[in-house]
């Protein structure tokens, strides 16, 4: 039986993969330092296809689907959650820079102590009775979204010995076509754990990787109330068919 790999082992694997010939702009699905990927990445390349039919339409969400209060994760549970109150806001645009309007954005995250309200999270850090870490909103006419929340804590995981995820917020996004569907994670600037994290480092092109990091924006911070972060999201596509490309 072999011991769990150390962070040093994992970091050496990451470094070797980053030295590879072509930096990857999307995560490498077979990124071995992320051990859970071993049996869960396709080994045959995807087939390239023109999107058609339902693929050309994103699902539609409306005000009947989302309560505006769902965008404030700090007010939903009767009391005030523990931690550093922040606002995260930005725009969702497509590959042509056009705003994605009135579309659903979903977020979920750990609390300030790095604990998820999930029964499989066994991290011995307290649950906060006033924080579930789940939010939703619809983008506005400029593609803008805004969540008020608590800065999540880093948390341990079992990828290797002494493995810690950098603080992050999970984001779920839709575009104007089904083909633009995206689930990703937003990280915080200057986090010393990001360099050690095989999930973040699975995007081997540094410029694309940095697109996952929000910027501290003092203009979004509010006097004696909260700190502001800005994070813009660029979806792929639109994936036009040759017929639409005029």
């Amino acid at each position: 039986m072999t011991a769990d790999p150390s962070q040093r082992d994992i970091s050496a694997e990451i470094e070797a993969l980053h030295a590879g010939p072509a930096p990857a702009r999307q995560p490498i699905l077979s990124f071995t330092p992320y051990r859970s990927s071993t049996l869960r990445h396709p080994t045959r390349a995807p087939r390239r296809v023109d999107p058609e039919g339902a693929e050309l339409f994103a699902p539609v969400f409306g005000h009947c689907d989302v309560d505006p209060l769902e965008a404030d994760l700090t007010i939903r549970h009767g009391g005030v959650p523990i931690g550093e109150r922040i606002v995260v806001q930005g725009r969702v645009v497509d590959g042509d820079g056009r705003p994605v309007r009135r579309q659903l954005v979903e977020v979920w995250q750990a609390n300030a102590g790095g604990r998820y309200l999930h029964q499989r999270d066994q991290h011995p850090s307290p649950v906060d009775p006033n924080f579930t870490g789940v939010g939703r909103c619809l983008t506005d006419d400029d593609g803008g979204y805004r969540f008020v929340t608590i800065r999540p804590g880093p948390y341990p995981w079992r990828n290797h010995h002494n493995a810690w995820r950098p603080a992050h917020i999970h984001f779920s996004l839709f575009g104007t076509q089904f083909t633009q569907r995206l689930i990703t994670q937003m990280y915080f600037p200057g986090d010393p754990l990001s360099g050690l994290d095989p999930i973040y480092q699975s995007v081997t092109d540094p410029r694309d990787r940095e697109r996952l990091v929000a910027a501290y924006d003092h203009d979004l911070s509010e006097h004696e109330w909260l700190l502001g972060y800005r994070w813009d999201i660029v979806l792929s596509g639109p994936h036009r068919t040759p017929l639409d490309a005029s």
């Binding site: 999307q26 979903e106 750990a110 995007v203 990787r209």
Partner: peptide, 17 residues
């Protein structure tokens, strides 16, 4: 430049369904 994806992770189960 497109924002990269990341894994849904293990803890979406109380958030997305």
């Amino acid at each position: 430049m497109t924002t990269p994806g990341q894994t849904i992770g293990p803890f979406y189960g109380y958030a997305l369904p």
